[in-house]
Design a protein around this nucleic acid. Structure first.
Length: 111
DNA sequence: GGCGTGACTTATA
DNA sequence: ATATAAGCCACGC
C-alpha cells in the first residue's frame, strides 16, 4: 500500500516543497520553516531538508536559496560548498551580513 | 510493512 | 542565555 492510493499522483509533500522552492524569486532566500509553514506545518522543516537533500532537479530547485531560520546557509551539503552558495546568492543580489549570514531583514521571506 | 535516521523549528526547564 | 524534548515526513534496510 502506498500513499499514492489516496493522493493524486504527484501531490506528495515533496512536490509541494519543490513547488514552493521554485517559487522563490531571485535575490531572496527562504527558510526551512517558511516552506514548512507553506505546506501546513512548521515542523515539516525536516522534510524540507530531506526534499532538498534528494534534490531531483538542482537546476530548478535552487537549494542555495534555502537557509536556516537564523539566516545561516546550509552547513555544506550544497554543491560546491558554502563558498559557492554565498557567491550565488550575492550574484542574485542577496545582501550578506559580516557574520556570513544572509540579510534576513531584506531578503528573508519571513512571515 | 516496521524501525531508525536526517540539510530543521519551536517550546520548555 | 544554553540545553533538552517533542513533532513532522520520506528514504534505506
Amino acid at each position: 500500500m502506498s500513499r499514492f492510493d489516496f493522493e493524486p499522483k504527484g501531490s506528495s509533500t515533496f512536490d509541494q516543497i519543490y513547488a514552493e522552492v521554485k517559487m522563490i524569486p531571485a535575490g531572496k532566500v527562504a527558510s526551512y520553516g517558511y516552506i514548512a509553514c507553506r505546506l501546513g506545518n512548521l515542523r515539516l522543516s525536516r522534510v524540507v531538508g530531506y526534499a532538498l537533500h534528494s534534490n531531483p532537479d538542482p537546476e530548478n530547485i535552487p537549494c542555495h536559496r534555502i537557509v536556516m531560520k537564523n539566516g545561516a546557509l546550509a552547513p555544506g551539503f550544497v554543491f560546491g560548498g558554502p563558498c559557492e552558495q554565498r557567491k550565488r546568492l550575492e550574484a542574485e543580489g542577496v545582501s550578506f551580513l559580516p557574520d556570513g549570514r544572509v540579510d534576513m531583514e531584506k531578503c528573508g521571506m519571513r512571515l
